[in-house]
Design a protein around this nucleic acid. Structure first.
Lengths: 194, 194
DNA sequence: GTTAGAATAGACCAACTGGTCTGTTTATTT
DNA sequence: AAATAAACAGACCAGTTGGTCTATTCTAAC
């Protein structure tokens, strides 16, 4: 309780939403888990949907932080890009992995105008921006296209990992990323080829 | 009604599930859309979950059929693989595209033991098998790894397309596939290189 | 010690959920 | 024309949903 009821509520809700989905997790269930009164939820967030938004933002901040932290010790941005995929592999191997929340959110909130859908969309944007930043630092050309591709591969990896529950997708994704980077590098060194 | 009430129910339910999600679409809503009595549903499918399974199987059959049909006129299996991604692009451009159902299903049914989750999983298997078949026909080596990669890229493409609503992900996916195939080809022709 | 703000429990709400049961009507078959 | 089976409308069920309201208690700040 010291770190504010609000944050506690968010992290409890997050765990439940992750493992059981947004629609199937009732509010009552969250309150019970967090040992918090219903009015605390509604005073702080206003509605279940806005709680979900808070959870998504929290998870996004968390995930992007974790990802960049996990590659911060590498000096070469080229390696950092590949390191992201290693971090994904580590994530899939963790016992409590149960798929990417943001993909679940877009699936459960088909209306793109809904707040949760927007929050999930924003996360995708930030992930792509992270890749783009690294691509630029690596001085790879067409970093915009490249970063979209990398983000797409990461999504595919997440999506596949949810189904097969191995780190194999991340390893495959890394291999593909490696090939793409290799080519982007070659193109930069000798722009006449290809 | 001629093509059996059962099938009509499935296709109505499918449209609703696609656009509004599984949990949020109530049974009553489906019945209304299909102009069918509730008992018809329960006599034919037994439960909402089994209706969902039927819908997923129907959609899977449909999609795989459509994909292979769209590339059947191409003689080179190499081109057929790439053609799959063109078909995806076409799909994203269609007005009623609203994301891949199977991804939505795994997201909405987190329990992998649930019937809908299993049905969605089966679809992924069939899609991978389709790629593997084409890889083998193209006489590319390590067709198993390659086909998993292609399936993963396709998933990432679907996933991204749901969010950005353009055919760009499919075009990017195609480019990546092209690179992967190129390399698999080169490796086959001169196994010493790389 | 008083006061203000947050958090509490729990009653309450209308709407809706998936699902069952009944009794009747509509087709199809013989 | 009779019999069989499928589809029908609609009442009904208990359980759950997200959300509101009230009245009480806790916990700081001053």
């Amino acid at each position: 309780m010291p770190p504010s009821k609000k944050q506690h509520l968010v992290s409890c809700a997050r765990r439940l939403f992750e493992t059981e989905g947004f629609h199937t997790t009732g509010i009552e269930r969250i309150l019970e888990e967090a040992s918090v009164a219903k009015m605390t939820l509604y005073n702080n967030f206003g509605s279940k949907d806005m709680l979900i938004v808070a959870v998504l933002n929290d998870a996004s901040h968390d995930m992007l932080g974790r990802l960049s932290a996990s590659v911060s010790h590498l000096h070469d941005p080229y390696d950092q890009i590949l390191g992201i995929f290693d971090a994904l592999a580590g994530w899939y191997n963790s016992a409590d992995f149960c798929g990417c929340m943001f993909q679940a959110a877009v699936a459960e909130f088909p209306d793109p105008e809904s707040e949760p859908a927007k929050a999930a969309h924003a996360h995708l944007g930030r992930l792509t921006a992270l890749f783009e930043d690294l691509c630029r630092k690596a001085e790879l050309d067409d970093s915009e296209t490249l970063s979209s591709m990398l983000a797409m591969i990461a999504s595919g990896s997440n999506c596949t990992a949810r189904q097969i529950r191995t780190d194999l997708p991340a390893r495959h994704a890394r291999q593909i990323a490696e090939i793409l980077l290799e080519r982007a590098c070659a193109r930069r060194l000798s722009p006449t080829s290809v």
